[in-house]
Amino acid sequence: MTCARCQQFAAAPGGTLCVRCAVPGAVVRSPVGLGRATATLLGVVIAADLFAVVADVLEMNVTGDIAEGVTGADVVQRADHADALYNASGIAQAVALLATMTVYLCWLWRVRVNAEAFNPGGHSKARGWTIGGWFVPVVNLWFPRRVTLDIWDSSAPWAERPGHALVNLWWAMWIVSLFADRAADTESRHAHAAAALHQAASMMLVSDVIDIAAAALAVLVVLKITRMQHGRALAGPVPVPALG
């Protein structure tokens, strides 16, 4: 008897699936709803980052003026306004990131399980690394990329292997944004003089712009994988060439 899922290999004795397809819990479920929600929340992250960019510019302007010796009630008022926006933008970014991360991980788990159903042997990392890979120090610099690439390849249309340029670009931008944010945060915490605060705001501006680019690329990756899996599910099992 041929496997009812892949229709390529013989089903295991007493079952309807082959050994490769008999993956516990690997049942295809639609990723469309979660994919759209994740893309929308990534858009919220971009909006929060744009708000932060405005706050960064205002902070740079006022600290630059103070560093140059400009004084007066107007400068004090601008400084208070810039600080308020700067703090508010940080809170907005944190809330947006937390909400997006929660939904994104739900989407990622869904598409990973789907990918196992499509291609049980196409995954180099255990399923647990789909979530854990983001939180374990050091390995979180490359495990999520590897998991995403395995999902990407396993979700591709039959007999097709899409290039990895988009995933690689997204991951490179994400890593750069992490280090840029760390550097900007360190500079900000140690800055006290106006000149140092101006430098910290400049670094934070660069970090926020990079984060916008990383989030935009993440939207493209999420939508692409979601579309591939939706199309793969609609296409059904791989066609078997007729014999004779």
Score class of each variant (00 low, 15 high):
Q229P: 13
H190F: 10
H164N: 02
W109D: 08
R227V: 03
P120Y: 06
A52Q: 03
A12Y: 06
G231M: 10
P137E: 06
H192M: 12
T226D: 12
I175Q: 12
V53M: 12
A22S: 15
H164W: 00
I210R: 00
A92H: 08
V27N: 09
T102R: 05
A117T: 02
G43Y: 05
G231T: 11
A92I: 09
L108N: 08
H123E: 00
V136S: 10
I131Q: 02
Q199C: 04
A22L: 13
R127Q: 07
R5N: 10
V113H: 01
P144Q: 07
G15I: 03
G236I: 00
V136M: 12
M60F: 10
F51H: 04
F143E: 07
A213G: 12
A215T: 00
A12S: 11
F135E: 02
D49F: 13
A196C: 00
S202Y: 07
T16W: 09
I151F: 05
A117C: 01
R78E: 06
T71F: 03
N87W: 13
I131Y: 07
Q93H: 12
N87G: 09
V167P: 01
F179P: 08
L141Y: 06
A84Y: 07
L234G: 13
N61S: 01
D153A: 13
E160Y: 09
G132P: 02
G25Y: 12
A117S: 05
D185Y: 13
A115W: 00
I46D: 06
E187A: 15
L105E: 09
C18R: 03
G163T: 11
G122P: 00
V62R: 06
A94F: 14
T63G: 04
I210W: 02
D80F: 08
V45A: 14
G14D: 11
E116R: 15
R145C: 05
G43L: 05
L220E: 01
V76N: 06
G128E: 05
V19L: 07
F179W: 15
E68V: 09
A4F: 10
K125H: 11
V27L: 10
D49R: 07
P237H: 12
A26G: 01
A73S: 14
R78M: 08
T38A: 15
P144E: 04
V53D: 11
W107T: 04
P144R: 08
G69T: 14
R20M: 09
A218K: 07
A156E: 05
P31D: 04
A159N: 15
L217N: 09
V45M: 15
A216P: 02
F9V: 03
A193Y: 08
F143M: 08
V221A: 03
M173K: 06
S202C: 05
V240M: 10
L108C: 03
T100H: 11
T63N: 15
E160T: 15
N61W: 00
V32L: 14
P120V: 09
A92L: 13
